[in-house]
Simulated assay, not measured.
Amino acid sequence: MMLCVVVCMIVGYLFGCFQTGYFVGRINKIDIRDYGSGNSGTTNTLRTLGKTAAIVTFLGDALKGLIAVNLARYVIIPAFGVKSQAVLWLLTGFAVVLGHNFPFFLKFKGGKGIATTGGVIFAFHWQLGLLCGLVFLVVTALTKYVSLGSICMVLIIPFILYFSEPNNWPLIFVGCIFTAMAIWRHRANIERLLHGTENKLGQKVKR
């Protein structure tokens, strides 16, 4: 069991280290982390390189979460003979987010993990993934703050996991770790939101 957990998390972390935004930036002859918010996520890519680059970044970051969780779910865990356990799927997904946020080959400077988290939750339970996506879209559309939409999305994760599997406390605990990680990664955004200085959707970054 423990070896299975270790393998799932290593695989998840390595998947997470694939920095879509960084590679999209390199194709455009820049290091995306040198601009805007300094991370390699979808929002910074949108502000720096535009919609097409942002869409590619979002899809890449979401897909790595979705693929890694399904790989653990249908290949790695069965190979170890472990009965299918939802908490192992989510732990794999958390490792993907860790790899995205702290990629070893980029000196642990990555993104904030929101698109990747969305892909993980969608792989875990597609209806819950759609609900998270809906919350993100509605809040972002109403406020024009991507960061606020992201924060609201991750805040509901422990609750939707509770209503999905109310007696699975290890699963809910992992969901709380997802939320805590995302909130911590958005601490600067939260401070700017409180002071009214946060950038709104559509604002560009000078290159």
Rank of each mutant, 00 (worst) to 15 (best):
I183N: 05
A182W: 02
D34W: 02
V135Y: 08
I151R: 03
Y22D: 06
I67H: 09
R207C: 08
N168Y: 07
G113K: 06
V6N: 07
A182F: 09
V82I: 14
C17E: 14
R207D: 05
E191T: 15
S84E: 12
L63V: 14
E165S: 13
T179F: 15
V56N: 05
V138D: 11
Y162M: 01
S164R: 02
F173C: 14
A68P: 03
G25M: 14
F80L: 10
L106R: 07
T197G: 04
I177R: 00
G133T: 10
I30M: 00
F94N: 03
V139F: 10
I160P: 05
G25E: 12
T92C: 15
I157C: 07
V174H: 10
F80W: 08
H125M: 11
T92P: 07
A79C: 07
G175K: 05
L106M: 08
K29I: 05
S164E: 08
V87L: 00
L91Y: 03
P170H: 01
L134I: 13
V97L: 15
N28F: 11
A115H: 07
M1E: 09
F163W: 15
N44P: 03
R192V: 06
D31P: 05
L134F: 14
L161V: 04
F178A: 01
W169E: 14
E165G: 02
R47V: 05
V139L: 12
H125V: 05
S150V: 10
T143V: 05
V69T: 10
R26D: 03
L106H: 01
F15P: 01
I156Y: 08
R207N: 11
A180C: 14
S150E: 10
P78G: 06
I76S: 05
T48F: 00
P103K: 01
Q19V: 09
G65E: 02
Y13T: 13
L201E: 01
G41Q: 04
L131Q: 08
H125D: 13
L130I: 15
P103N: 07
L46Y: 13
T179V: 12
C152R: 04
Q127I: 13
M2G: 14
M181F: 13
I10R: 09
Y35V: 04
T92K: 04
S164C: 11
I32Y: 00
M2I: 14
V139A: 06
V174T: 14
L131P: 06
S164L: 07
G196A: 12
G12H: 11
A86R: 04
F159C: 12
K107C: 09
G111A: 07
